[in-house]
Design a protein around this nucleic acid. Structure first.
Length: 883
RNA sequence: GCGGGCGUGGCGGAACUGGCAGACGCGCCAGCCUUAGGAGCUGGUGACCGCAAGGUCUUGGGGGUUCAAAUCCCUCCGCCCGCACCA
């Protein structure tokens, strides 16, 4: 069933046999599900509220009425709310369900507020698990994936999430991934996609290369127990570094809309530092190029005690050629070997001691002509800057540690104001601050402040030609080649004559072949498929080989949200006009796990698309919400940990609305949530109570007038007045919780409290005219609507409406009605509560105080004492300070 | 080490800009209704003292600011997350 709804096309028809198999599995699962649902009904037997019937009924109505289908409409304000698209693994669990529930509430609230809401869903369908599952079960990745998609879709539909399913996309379909290829070619044309041989991260379990972002403390992001190896491989890169400056700069535009810590994480990841390159000539070995170092503190260059090279620096070997002593030579080779083999494991890094050795050669400080020794040190990274540094121990923690250990001189050149002169021989720690200090021992620069000195000295270096200002980034280009099958083929061929040749646009997509031997052994499966590999050169028509690497699946998810705007376009990735209407994403919702990977790549892609002229904005999402994880046993639910609770189980046992309500009630959405099924009963009971309440009044109220036209003139009884007051006050606060704070848990608590007030100790009914009762019950229903939409529709119908709740807006609260006539004032004596008063709202300070003093309980506490101070917080509190 | 977050009853959690700590729900206790109930309803439920009225204590520990602190400041402890030799 579900697979039918994925966008059609030639490829899918070809795969119909595979999908038939998937469908048969699904049919079996359906039968099992119906059994379970029957069991749920039996379990809840005796309750009048029948969520299974109600939910099926309204889901059908919504579908028939096309309630959630949206089109771009410039005459209406739009709202694009998006939950990160799931990888369709085996089971849709409570973590997913929480994510989509939050998004659905937002979508429904925004619809009620009159926005034209885009709320789509799709599948991140390429990826390694499908391939591994296929190998294990001797099936095809497509079968496995489409099976899971069918299952995911069914569960999402079962929960009544308000998606426009016509816009569903699946990234493993050629209709989608052809545009990955198209974008790749645009980048290739502009030099943003390039091929190079480089040291890469290799996961032996994935049997593929990983991007830097996918290496966590030296381990694979998918395999927490697998150390990443370093291999030298030729592969494709996307030039993310070309956008490093913008990626960091535009973070400013996200402040306020994105969580602070995500912005910080991105900023740190990109790791901009502004500094300078300086060349130090090699003094002892003839004919060598100068050594270039990178520093952010050129102002401290007069304090340089040594040059330190990374173990992998190309000049290390050449410098050692000059070492005369062969014993030194042998010793040094052993040390180098040890340094290069140093483990990348986090725990080793933590305890890593700084080690190094002297090369025997010296370099010349271009500022003062001083000869300083050239060392090799394990703490200098080849991958950052130039792989060489100047060590200024007096003003850098690491240099200080290294130089002290090896007895290198420490010479302060920046002197903090108002302190005794720093002494290199005795100082216990380096002075690393910038402010409030002047240069000393620095020739013509003495007396300058740090920032001024940096400018002046960099200018001097530039002028003399031995240096220049430079900005470096920690961010590296995105390696996108993957030596696996289940991904987007990279649309390039290798021709003996023409070299690397792009596949022309009109030959896209390069379709992933269906029949490929998947063994999990050896190299890329595509490379072992001659019918795929052997092709002709688009340029010369001669024999050529296809590229057999596929793209990192993060490519798929870097731009998918644009495709939702125009999912069936076969001429372009999307129509820019449609995107211009819907974008930016107003609210993106997903896990913090993607704070770097997905979000960084998406931001990069957006800027590239902007420079291609497809869009005009620079950031894809104006607001980002990172919802907390659902934990079981203290760790996030995940298939690999085997601690999954399936969302469907909850729908079967209690119905979707109870499940949704409970997910929202259990905690604030940004906090982590330890899963426990114990208290879901409370949500079930509450919905039952609401149902029974409305049911009891429905027949009488169905034809009643809706609400009181003029509350002032109506002559409301005290009881009616109170009912309306508490209802409207609840509405005011619930509206605030929905719009401003997303505190769905306290919104639900407020609605529960309202129920208790309306129908608690005293049942609703006696002496309350129908129109008042109806107003109360309608508002209660509307407040529940975003969270428990099926039940709300049913109640709305029971209350006599045939129009469907989806056509009803969010109610306005009546401020006059919500206002309290009387307020309770807490009376404190010396900060301790001693009594309570009920007074007319707005009673004067003097009036409140005299009443407070007259209160017998209060009087007892101030007897024989003198009131020295009276504090009055209007409508709230009186504090009498006595001595 | 650096950056960020968190710490409230038996449990999940409320408490908006400092103003009644423990809302709401779970669980538990008692009662009602029932042939029965994992159904429903009513009441109670932070700890301690007290027959009661009432009082004292209480938001990880300690200190401070304030008429008033879960909330602000200092300090210590614990847990979680991110970064981690980035020159």
């Amino acid at each position: 069933m579900a697979a039918e709804n994925i966008q059609g096309g030639e490829q899918r028809r070809q795969d119909s046999a595979l999908q038939d198999a998937a469908r048969q599995d699904s049919a079996l699962q359906d039968a099992a599900r119906q059994d379970a649902e029957r069991a749920g009904r039996a379990f809840q037997e005796g309750s009048k509220y029948d969520p299974w019937a109600i939910e099926a009924k309204w889901q059908k109505r919504w579908e028939d009425a096309k309630v959630f289908e949206t089109e771009a409409d410039p005459s209406r304000p739009k709202y694009y709310v998006l939950e990160m698209l799931p990888y369709p693994s085996g089971t849709l669990h409570m973590g997913h369900m929480r994510n989509y529930t939050i998004g659905d509430v937002v979508a429904r609230v925004k619809r009620m507020h009159g926005f034209n809401v885009l709320h789509p869903m799709g599948w991140d369908a390429f990826g390694l698990p499908a391939e591994n599952a296929a190998i294990k079960n001797n099936t095809h990745p497509r079968t496995w994936t489409n099976n899971n998609i069918g299952e995911f879709q069914r569960v999402l539909r079962r929960f009544g999430f308000s998606y426009d399913w016509r816009r569903e996309i699946s990234t493993c379909e050629p209709e989608y991934y052809r545009w990955n290829q198209w974008f790749f070619l645009r980048m290739f044309e502009r030099g943003l996609a390039y091929r190079k041989k480089s040291r890469v991260n290799w996961c032996p379990k994935c049997c593929t290369v990983l991007a830097n972002e996918q290496v966590i403390n030296g381990y694979c992001w998918r395999h927490e127990d697998t150390l990443v190896e370093v291999r030298e491989i030729e592969q494709w890169f996307l030039k993310t570094t070309a956008y490093a400056e913008q990626l960091i700069d535009d973070l400013k535009t996200l402040e306020g809309g994105w969580p602070e810590r995500v912005i910080t994480m991105q900023r740190n990841w990109i790791g901009k530092s502004v500094g300078a390159r300086v060349k130090f000539g090699v003094a002892d070995v003839a004919g060598l190029e100068p050594i270039e170092i990178f520093t952010t503190r050129i102002d401290t260059i007069y304090g340089a005690s040594a040059i330190i090279l990374a173990a992998g620096h190309p000049l290390v070997q050449e410098l050692l050629v000059g070492a005369k002593d062969t014993r030194l030579r042998a010793d040094v080779d052993a040390k180098l070997k040890k340094m290069r083999a140093a483990s990348v494991k986090a725990e080793d890094l933590e305890t890593a001691e700084k080690i190094g050795f002297f090369t025997g050669a010296h370099a010349t400080n271009p500022f003062n002509g001083e000869k300083i020794p050239i060392w090799v040190g394990n703490f200098v990274l080849m991958e950052y800057g130039t792989g060489a540094i100047m060590a200024v121990p007096a003003h850098d923690e690491r240099d200080f540690e290294f130089c002290r250990k090896y007895g290198l001189s420490v010479r302060p050149v920046v002197q903090p104001d108002g302190v005794a002169a720093l002494d290199g021989a005795t100082m216990k720690a380096p002075f690393v601050e910038h402010g409030g200090a002047k240069l000393v021992n620095s020739g013509p620069y003495n007396g300058l402040g740090v920032d001024d000195a940096i400018v002046a000295m960099a200018a001097h270096a530039t002028e003399k030609g031995f240096g220049q200002r430079e900005t470096t980034y920690r961010l590296k280009d995105w390696g996108v080649s993957r030596q696996r099958y289940w991904g987007t083929p990279i649309p390039v061929v290798y021709c003996e004559k023409d070299g690397i040749v792009a596949v022309p646009d009109d030959q896209l997509p390069v379709v992933l072949p269906k029949d490929v031997a998947l063994t999990g052994e050896g190299g890329s499966p595509l490379a072992a498929t001659p019918s795929f590999v052997n092709t002709t050169c688009p340029k010369c028509g001669g024999p050529a080989r296809r590229e057999t690497d596929t793209m990192d699946t993060f490519v798929d998810s870097s731009w998918y949200f644009y495709r939702y705007c125009d999912p069936h376009n076969d001429k372009a990735p999307f129509d820019s006009k449609k995107v211009a209407y819907w974008f930016q994403i107003d609210q993106y919702i997903g896990g913090i796990t993607h704070a770097i990977l997905h979000l960084l790549y998406s931001r990069f892609w957006c800027k590239v698309m902007r420079d291609l002229g497809l869009i005009t904005h620079s950031e894809p999402a104006a607001r980002l919400f990172t919802q907390g994880m659902v934990l079981k046993g203290g760790v996030a639910m995940s298939k690999s940990r085997g601690n999954i609770v399936g969302a469907i189980d909850m729908a079967e046992k209690y119905g979707a609305d109870t499940g949704r309500l409970y997910m929202l009630f259990a905690n604030q959405p940004e906090r982590d949530l330890e899963w426990s099924e114990d208290s879901i009963e409370g949500s079930w009971r509450f919905l039952n109570k609401v149902y029974r309440l409305v049911d009891r009044h429905a027949s009488e109220l169905a034809s009643a007038k809706a609400g009181v036209a003029d509350h002032e003139a109506a002559g409301l009884s005290a009881k009616e007045r109170k009912l309306l007051r508490v209802t409207h006050e609840t509405l005011r606060r619930v509206t605030q919780d929905f719009d401003a704070r997303w505190h769905f848990n306290s919104a639900i608590a407020l609605i529960m409290t309202l129920y208790n007030e309306v129908d608690g100790a005293e049942p609703l009914g006696d002496g309350v005219r129908p129109e008042v009762r109806k107003e109360v019950l309608e508002l209660l229903t509307l407040m529940l609507a975003p969270m428990t939409p099926h039940l709300a529709e049913e109640l709305w119908e029971m209350l006599g409406h045939s129009n469907g709740l989806w056509s009803v807006g969010w109610p306005e609260f009546n401020a006059a009605l919500a206002k309290e006539d009387e307020v309770e004032i807490v009376v404190q004596v010396n900060g301790r509560v001693r009594g309570k008063l009920v007074v007319q709202a707005g009673t004067s300070e003097a009036g409140v105080i005299s009443k407070a003093l007259a209160d017998p309980a209060v009087a007892a506490h101030i007897a024989n004492k003198q009131v020295v101070k009276q504090i009055v917080v209007p409508n709230k509190l009186v504090n009498l300070v006595v001595k």
